[in-house]
Design a protein around this nucleic acid. Structure first.
Lengths: 229, 229
DNA sequence: TCTTGTTAGATTGTCGACAATCTGCTTGTC
DNA sequence: GACAAGCAGATTGTCGACAATCTAACAAGA
């Protein structure tokens, strides 16, 4: 008998859907950093009462992409150059650790997934779908975390991912030139499938530094933003 | 003129107070793992409506110490041996990183803080106040994170701390013998004040392993718990 | 002119009630 | 007795209204 384990049914609460909508809006840059979220307006737009909206906002505050000041409002987090540096330097450390943990766990399904996600990135690149390209690249990157079999590490990575995605989206938005067409993940994928763990760790670190430089140049250009209504 | 910079005023929303109350109850083990949180009952006990209570619970869910199933309820997270192992192994990695970042940042205020927090631990130990002892020990431990000057790392550590505190509290609760009177932090403190960073990192790792063994033996004895009303 | 007090409007925080969903029990049927 | 249907109670999710707080504009006084 085929072993088909059903995943949990979809959370069909308004709250969950609101969280997804808001998160997407923030991570794609539709909601700009520093921008204030007006509860009444958003709840009306979504045809929802303020209660589930506020609960959703609480989640996103804890997730680190919103910030809230009592009686003043809830805002999209501001992005400073330091934030980006901090996130990236931590990401390096976590990557190294994740690769170490995931390495002995690699199995056929892992290798399949690598290719599948790599393919998704390439497709998004061809389609010049910037948002999706960022999304898929991070998903490829997150594979080692999923295979590391450490729930706390995975959680930490997911939190970090939110910000990284936001940073990249802002970056791409700032320079509105088309996305690089070359495939920067080729080497990384090859190393993940290879036998030399140290090499993979080294590459992950260097690869990150590459993207980092670009992002940082953007970050340095960031000015303080005023909160918009 | 003395430069006194006022910190932000206290968040005097009911929500914030509820979060603090609930968190404390969970971290000290007053609310047991797996236990269900009945909204109506708690809101009545606290003389508060369900709205701010629910928002507070959302925060704690994202904080990782509560878990929620739509239309079923919100529960204190279950603690498995694997969770403890995962948290600790990540903690090791983060510690090493934090020491590295904090090392060049050490200043007179840092050394003062080390002593101050170390003193707090010793005092709690003398008073045989187990809860406070765990709290202060973690605060001493968290010093390197505060000095690392990496906001994302600090956040990550604080999330991790919540769980560690919970694990320790459960552990102490399980074996109701008094707390060890000897000062296990003496060496750590000395190394933090010393000149050899590598030695400090090494000790942090070993020291952790020590406590870890004890905690693990407890974790292994953990049985599945049924949810209580 | 600058400061301080006041007030109106907008927005967030909180409340009590209703709707949707789950759980366990009972009932009826075979 | 086993099993499904249906019902009652309890609990969570959502709503609309009210209270508390903030903001900005304006007026009064030094």
């Amino acid at each position: 008998m085929a072993k088909l384990d059903f995943g949990p049914i979809a959370d069909t609460t308004r709250r969950a859907e609101i969280v997804a909508l808001l998160r997407r809006a923030i991570l794609t840059g539709q909601l700009e950093p520093g921008q204030k979220l007006n509860e009444l307006r958003i709840s009306e737009q979504m045809r929802v009462s303020r209660a589930p909206l506020r609960e959703a906002m609480r989640e996103l505050v804890q997730e680190g992409i919103l910030t809230s000041i009592p009686y003043a409002g809830t805002f999209v987090i501001d992005v400073t150059a330091k934030d980006i540096i901090d996130a990236y330097s931590l990401n390096k450390v976590l990557d190294e650790f994740a690769i170490e943990l995931a390495w002995p766990q690699r199995d056929p399904r892992f290798f399949d997934e690598v290719d599948r996600r790599h393919e998704a990135v390439k497709q998004a690149t061809r389609a010049v779908d910037t948002t999706r390209q960022i999304e898929t690249a991070l998903q490829l990157h997150g594979l080692i975390y999923e295979w590391a079999d450490n729930s706390v590490l995975l959680e930490t990575w997911q939190r970090l991912t939110s910000r990284l995605q936001m940073y990249f989206a802002l970056h791409q938005r700032a320079r509105n030139e088309p996305v690089p067409a070359e495939d920067v993940h080729e080497t990384y994928v090859a190393l993940l499938k290879g036998a030399d763990m140290r090499a993979a760790q080294r590459h992950a670190r260097e690869h990150i530094d590459l993207d980092f430089e670009e992002l940082l140049s953007y970050a340095r250009g960031l000015e303080k933003r005023v909160s918009k209504n």
